[in-house]
Design a protein around this nucleic acid. Structure first.
Lengths: 247, 247
DNA sequence: CGAGGGGTTGACGCCGATCAAAGCTGGTGG
DNA sequence: CCACCAGCTTTGATCGGCGTCAACCCCTCG
């Protein structure tokens, strides 16, 4: 069982102010893309813009209740922690994703804990501002519905990816997901910690380590620079279908 | 690996007509509960009402594209089938749930295959009718967003339930879900086929059978009548946290 | 330089996949 | 009414993969 790591940090995020909102790509974020300029004039004053360092907690399940968050840049994990301390990563969110949408549908608390993986740049928007915007611009409903649908698709894909197969297959599927959704322009992605990978695909840290090490030895996983890696997509796709036997 | 069973039946559903809509509890279905009576006058003529027998296919991934479905009564499994024939059950839907909502958010095909488990009573509604209703009554956006949120919660719960733990724990969690969401007034629920359970929690048919048989022997799972069972919730909760060792 | 945390590797035992066979049950036809 | 059959369930035997525990390596930071 994977337990919550003690490496999380609760240090406060850096406040980036509000004046950035006018010129920022805010408007290109998915959920606002359909709205006219006029919609923002009275609403911007309520939106804060923050920078969260790696491993910092953005919100915890059951707290706050007042804001939803939009990821402008970076990478966030949504985590479920059970009473006995086991923790599972439910999904990864990147640029353009929204967090905390459950508050818009009558939930009285966050359903997950959100933790930054890479440094995260995000906007914090009061629920009341969203509700107000919705009533004036029904197009926002579409965008939020789209977000929910996207996350549902992610969750479904996750169930398929992790719900069956041997350890090598699950790790291969995880690498394919990282490659597809979280790679930079060069097709390189940050390799997560073994602990995070284990918490995502439901196997132990040691087994993840063995698989990753084996992939490296076989040349399927190559280090670029720093913690950036590229993977052999063809090989991974084959392994994701057919077990790679060690020994 | 669980393969698609050949027991599915493609026999056509029974058409129940349209005249039932006026007096039926249609209006109590979640996604329409907020609309006024007047909203339905011009829309009812487009809504069909069907009865699907057990094991019949309601729709297949990639086909039709024109309708969403509302479950009035019964039980449906949403299934994902991979190219190589492996199949997984993503979730179970009961009364009040909607299927095919992905068509409202720009998807050009169904994302899953929907198959009746028990006999299913449902309404088939053209996408165009929903879009038309939405434009007149924005309250419908709320209901559909709520549906999406509910299904996202289900998927999240599923990931937690099946993504980790020993076989006995997974079976226990599955029984708890059946008991909570799919039991009748007496707290009794239909025990699914071993094959369906296996496809849901990612283990083999034989292992599921061993666990269920053991639960019966220990008195944690009791037969009421027919295929209706009740389970010892306390025992299941304990097992769901701590492995039950055979032998 | 030592301490500490993450990653890697090894040894071992258990759990569950796999293959095989026998029991059960509901449906069909004689 | 019973024999029979097909499909599902249960049970057994075996084996491989992965969890578990432990040791060691490597890198970073104080």
């Amino acid at each position: 069982m994977i337990r919550a790591s003690n490496k999380v940090c609760y240090s406060g995020p850096e406040w980036m102010g509000r004046e950035h909102c006018h010129e920022c790509h805010f408007r290109q974020l998915e959920i606002f893309s359909e709205l006219p300029d006029s919609a923002f004039e009275n609403i911007l004053e309520h939106i804060d813009h923050f920078l969260y360092p790696s491993d910092s907690v953005i919100y915890e399940a059951g707290t706050d209740k007042q804001h939803i968050y939009l990821v402008r840049h970076g990478m966030v994990k949504l985590v479920h922690i059970t009473q006995d301390g086991a923790y599972r990563i439910l999904r990864l969110l990147g640029s353009g994703s929204a967090m905390g949408l459950e508050l818009l549908d009558g939930a009285d608390r966050y359903h997950h804990t959100a933790i930054a993986i890479k440094q995260v740049n995000l906007c914090k928007i009061p629920v009341s501002a969203i509700l107000q915007l919705e009533s004036i611009h029904p197009a926002l409903y579409h965008s939020i519905g789209q977000q929910l649908q996207d996350q549902l698709n992610l969750a479904d894909q996750w169930i398929v990816a992790i719900g069956s197969g041997h350890a090598s297959q699950r790790v291969a599927r995880l690498l394919l997901i990282l490659n597809e959704y979280f790679s930079d322009g060069d097709g390189a992605f940050i390799l997560l910690s073994r602990e995070d990978m284990a918490a995502m695909i439901g196997i132990t840290v040691e087994t993840v380590s063995r698989m990753i090490a084996e992939f490296k030895r076989q040349g399927f996983l190559l280090k670029n620079r720093g913690n950036l890696y590229t993977c052999d997509v063809t090989a991974m796709e084959q392994i994701s279908r057919q077990h790679l036997s060690l020994s």
